[in-house]
């Protein structure tokens, strides 16, 4: 039980995927203009990461290891992630056309989001069991969502204040991201 808690806490705060491991930066800057959109993106990524952890663990232990095919790991994992993302896209398009339009190109781009492949590969590297893998995947996605929502909250506030012309848009966003990352470094000493 303690190890599960440690995994959850570690994945969300100490080794936050976006702010400490620097994985999944593209949607972090791309979909963090509004809190609502970033929450939607976070939920989509949470589903994909959780399911990807589950499916890739099963494939790794029951197919790849069985037939000594570990060298196919990367391509098999990408296949799994791509299929999951396609499924999520179908569902969101049906359930929430507004969110579908707001996410735009970033929805299919979850496929190439290195955070998702990162979780799957880290699960193997850290030798987690099935439960730990799924928990790690979901916790990492929650950490990703947390980073996105914090960023979106700050950027919504930034719309209302005066910013020097040269700093508007991407430059200020990058500076904010850097400061956020430094803030999350404060968690490193906790464990």
């Amino acid at each position: 039980m303690t190890s599960i808690l440690a995994i959850v806490f570690g994945a969300i705060f100490i080794n936050n995927f976006v702010l400490s491991r620097f994985l999944g930066i593209c949607p972090f800057l791309g979909v963090s203009k509004k809190v609502e959109t970033s929450l939607g993106m976070g939920m989509a990524v949470t589903f994909v990461m959780g399911m990807a952890s589950l499916v890739t663990w099963l494939l790794e232990h029951y197919i790849l290891e069985e037939f000594n095919l570990q060298y196919l790991r990367t391509i098999v994992y990408i296949l799994v992630i791509a299929a999951l993302v396609q499924f999520v896209e179908l569902v969101i398009r049906k359930v929430s056309p507004v969110l579908y339009q707001a996410l735009g190109i970033f929805l299919p781009l979850i496929t190439t989001n290195c955070a998702v492949l990162g979780v799957a590969l880290l699960n193997v590297q850290l030798e987690y069991n099935l439960l730990e893998s799924v928990v790690f995947g979901i916790a990492a996605a929650i950490g990703f969502t947390l980073a996105l929502v914090i960023m979106a909250g700050i950027r919504e506030r930034l719309e209302l204040v005066f910013i020097p012309k040269a700093m508007r848009g991407v430059p200020i966003a990058l500076i904010v991201a850097g400061i956020l990352s430094i803030a999350f470094m404060g968690f490193q000493g906790m464990m």
Partner: peptide, 27 residues
């Protein structure tokens, strides 16, 4: 051969599942 069967089989399974989902969630 096992590599081809494994990857091809997985692709086929995912493809069938997605085709089913596409019909189920057709807009």
């Amino acid at each position: 051969l096992p590599a081809v069967i494994c990857l091809g089989g997985l692709g086929l399974i995912f493809g069938c599942l997605l085709a089913y989902a596409a019909q189920k969630f057709a807009v």
